[in-house]
Amino acid sequence: MLNQHHKTKEQILSENQLIEEARKDPARFGLLYEKYYRQIFVFVFRRTGDEDIAGDIVSDAFLKAMVALPKYEFKGLPFSSWLFRIALNEVNMFYRKDKRERNVSLEQSDLKNIITEAGEENTAEADRMVMQLLSSLTAEEMQFIELRFFEKRAFAEVAEILGITENNAKVRTYRILDKLKVLLNKNSTN
């Protein structure tokens, strides 16, 4: 799947050069920070809905990334995926501590995509039902839906962000979609 998160092989390799430099001299991490700050901020903001909370979480995420950089392994995926994973862990930690409702950002068109993917017709009733069904998901299941359908990421990236294999990411996403499909069919027949 080609999307805004896609990077060419050359871009990924030149990025790896920057990572190597940052490993030797932590001050060089500034280049990666400047490059990815906005993306990570938006990623966290979508999950918190508050700019100040997002700012704090992003700072912690970059600090953790700097500390963990010597352990980073290049797997041919963009460095941003690794940063997203750290940021997502920080978001999860924030919700574990804070116990508030998780913020889920989505576009109206994302709902339509899920309904189409579930093989249903796009109606206002279907929209309402999908929203209701999404509410019944667990936080972990919601992460798959957010990454795959609301942010339109490739399975390889979803897998890297969630720290699982690509195959596992596919299986789990489709299992959630099947669950939604069943609930949607059950509700529409009632």
């Binding site: 906005r38 938006v42 809905g49 700019e51 913020n103 576009e107």
Partner: peptide
Amino acid sequence: GFKFNIDPAPPKEEKIAEH
């Protein structure tokens, strides 16, 4: 346990710059 935010406004650029 979820608060759905449909078609949310993007974060303000000055806020991003501030942080």
